[in-house]
Amino acid sequence: MAAFNVGDLGNLGAYLREQRRTAQLSLRQLAEAAGVSNPYLSQIERGLRKPSAEVLQQVAKALRISAETLYVRAGILDEKERDDLETRAVILADPSISERQKQVLLQIYDAFRKENAAEAAAAAEAAETEEPS
């Protein structure tokens, strides 16, 4: 997982404020919907508090946005991890395929990811050992 940086608090707060305003919710309304106190939510928006993953999940649900997006904004999760989780969620939520098909599809997905990671690592290693001309 990505390390948490203090600068992430301001980015997260500004993003939450923007999402709240887009949803046309007051700070008090969002705090109530998310089950957190109004002062606590205000501190998060101002970049003074680092919310837990659970609080971010509650806020995301109240805003009807992806919790993973907030995790990335907070520096808890990196973009690649979010993309992986979202892909898995879409596969698992698809009602048109069976549970067995979902599991097979996830296995294929994992195999492709491992293969691509191995190829990227090999290419990076080759580039490091290559002598400049």
Score class of each variant (00 low, 15 high):
70 L>I: 02
33 A>P: 09
42 S>N: 12
61 K>R: 15
56 L>W: 06
48 L>T: 01
64 R>W: 02
77 L>N: 03
69 T>H: 12
63 L>Q: 07
48 L>S: 04
47 G>Q: 03
37 S>G: 14
41 L>W: 05
82 R>F: 04
40 Y>F: 14
71 Y>F: 15
80 K>Y: 13
74 A>R: 03
58 Q>M: 15
44 I>T: 01
72 V>M: 05
57 Q>A: 15
31 A>M: 04
66 S>A: 13
66 S>G: 08
39 P>C: 02
77 L>V: 07
74 A>H: 08
49 R>P: 00
42 S>E: 03
44 I>L: 04
57 Q>H: 14
63 L>G: 06
41 L>Y: 06
54 E>G: 05
51 P>W: 03
39 P>A: 01
35 G>I: 02
42 S>I: 00
81 E>Q: 15
42 S>G: 11
36 V>Y: 07
55 V>E: 09
80 K>T: 12
82 R>Y: 07
38 N>Y: 12
40 Y>Q: 10
82 R>C: 08
46 R>N: 13
36 V>E: 13
74 A>S: 08
57 Q>W: 10
59 V>E: 09
54 E>D: 14
71 Y>P: 06
66 S>M: 04
78 D>I: 00
32 E>F: 08
38 N>T: 07
60 A>W: 11
53 A>F: 03
39 P>Y: 01
49 R>S: 13
73 R>P: 01
32 E>P: 06
60 A>P: 10
54 E>T: 11
49 R>L: 01
58 Q>D: 15
44 I>A: 00
67 A>V: 08
33 A>W: 07
70 L>T: 02
73 R>F: 06
78 D>E: 11
59 V>W: 08
72 V>F: 02
61 K>M: 13
52 S>L: 04
59 V>F: 09
44 I>N: 00
35 G>P: 11
65 I>V: 15
62 A>Y: 06
32 E>R: 13
81 E>T: 10
41 L>D: 04
73 R>C: 10
71 Y>H: 11
80 K>F: 13
40 Y>T: 06
41 L>R: 00
67 A>Y: 10
68 E>M: 10
61 K>G: 12
74 A>M: 04
56 L>V: 05
58 Q>S: 15
32 E>G: 12
66 S>W: 12
32 E>W: 07
82 R>Q: 11
45 E>G: 05
36 V>R: 10
68 E>H: 15
60 A>Q: 09
60 A>C: 14
62 A>I: 09
70 L>V: 02
52 S>Y: 03
68 E>K: 06
38 N>W: 02
68 E>Y: 14
56 L>C: 06
69 T>M: 11
60 A>F: 10
69 T>F: 11
57 Q>V: 07
45 E>H: 03
42 S>V: 00
67 A>W: 08
60 A>Y: 13
40 Y>N: 07
45 E>C: 02
59 V>P: 08
71 Y>I: 00
80 K>D: 14
55 V>M: 04
41 L>K: 00
54 E>C: 00
51 P>Y: 09
57 Q>R: 15
38 N>L: 01
51 P>D: 06
65 I>Q: 11
35 G>T: 04
